[in-house]
């Protein structure tokens, strides 16, 4: 089943009078349940691709369809709703609210989908337990390690049961050991049927995925299925 389809999509920006083609006639489809990594040097268009996947942006030309919904011409309001219902974001810098408990951080998206406070906490607690942080629910981000913070962020991305998780350099701020832990978690989630699009510039992180999209100059340079490298439980080295 097609989850995400890009049909001759272009995205242009005008920067200081001249036009920049951030994405140039890209056609890609991603099926539900896939684990796709997006790689490419900076300026290759992977961020733009990511923003379009995440309904943060709309295409200048072409059609972007997410879960059967065409986002072209959608207003800010509809896009916000779409993000809230179907997309989970994970960022390099975690982007957790400071001085706010892990539980409230995880529950944040539910505020905007109109879930009542009690129900929000129950739901957030369930997801926190799923990422193994049930006991840390009342801790503030500053009291958590980098890896734990990223787990909270992943829990936040999961809390609305999205069809797609978008991870933008999720291991960029973590050491290799913790990175492996996080990638292991992503693979576990993918194993449970959640689709993941992961932007990275590290080949060994990209190796965790089953499909690699290589961007260069706003185009897809290569699109290959790869053998998935399994990241194992913490404490074990990644193996081929």
């Amino acid at each position: 089943m097609t989850l995400l389809s890009f049909d001759h999509v272009s995205r242009r920006y005008s920067v200081g009078g001249s036009e920049v083609h951030a994405l140039d006639d890209v056609s890609v489809t991603i099926d539900a349940g896939e684990f796709v990594s997006v790689i490419g040097p900076s300026g290759s268009g992977k961020s733009t691709f990511m923003n379009l996947c995440g309904c943060l942006d709309t295409p200048s030309d072409g059609r972007v369809t997410i879960d059967g919904v065409d986002v072209a011409g959608m207003g800010e309001e509809r896009l916000s709703e779409l993000r809230n219902e179907r997309i989970g974001f994970v960022f390099q810098q975690f982007n957790l609210l400071a001085r706010t408990s892990a539980l409230d951080n995880v529950a944040l998206p539910l505020i905007y989908s109109g879930v009542k406070r009690k129900a929000r906490h129950i739901e957030a607690m369930r997801v926190l337990e799923r990422v193994g942080l049930g006991e840390w629910a009342n801790h503030h981000p500053s009291q958590l390690s980098g890896g734990q913070q990223q787990r909270v962020a992943i829990a936040r991305a999961l809390v609305n049961e999205p069809v797609l998780i978008l991870a933008d350099e999720p291991t960029g701020a973590l050491d290799s050991h913790t990175s492996a832990e996080i990638m292991c978690l992503f693979q576990e989630l993918n194993g449970q049927g959640i689709s993941i699009v992961l932007v990275t510039h590290e080949q060994d992180i990209a190796a965790a995925s089953s499909r690699k999209l290589n961007f260069r100059d706003g185009k897809v340079l290569s699109d290959e299925r790869i053998e998935q490298t399994l990241f194992l439980e913490p404490g074990l080295e990644a193996t081929a």
Partner: peptide, 16 residues
């Protein structure tokens, strides 16, 4: 600003 960006990303509308 980042908090605003985050809230928007997880579904806050401009009017929220």
């Amino acid at each position: 600003t980042r908090e605003i960006g985050l809230r928007r990303a997880v579904g806050a509308k401009p009017r929220d």
